[in-house]
Amino acid sequence: MAKTLEDKQYLVRFNCDTESHLIIKDHQVCATQCPGKDCTVFCPADVYRWEGDRMFVGFEGCHECGSCRIGCPNDNIEWHYPKGGHGIVFRMA
């Protein structure tokens, strides 16, 4: 059984786009107005990672659930669907 999130993400097929569908509107807001960095905790695919001074966005592994857009306390994420046919491809349920 897959135990780590990394193992689990390998189970899923991603047809990645070359450009991100998730855009941090203002990196300064993450740095100065967001002590909790909640997105790095609740994102079910660990798409967001704080790298000391900047928010890294690993959009390639995104499940497109929308939690980050709704949960960002500063409304600082511009969120689109990936281009048609791109992004996550579930095979099961």
Binding site: L5, C65, M92, A93
Partner: peptide
């Protein structure tokens, strides 16, 4: 949840097929 002593016996020996998140 998967490791909980009440749940784990039901899953023993199973193999992960897919992981999914949704709202």
């Amino acid at each position: 949840l998967k490791a909980h002593p009440m749940i784990a016996p039901y899953l023993e020996g199973s193999e992960s097929q897919e992981y999914l998140a949704h709202l």
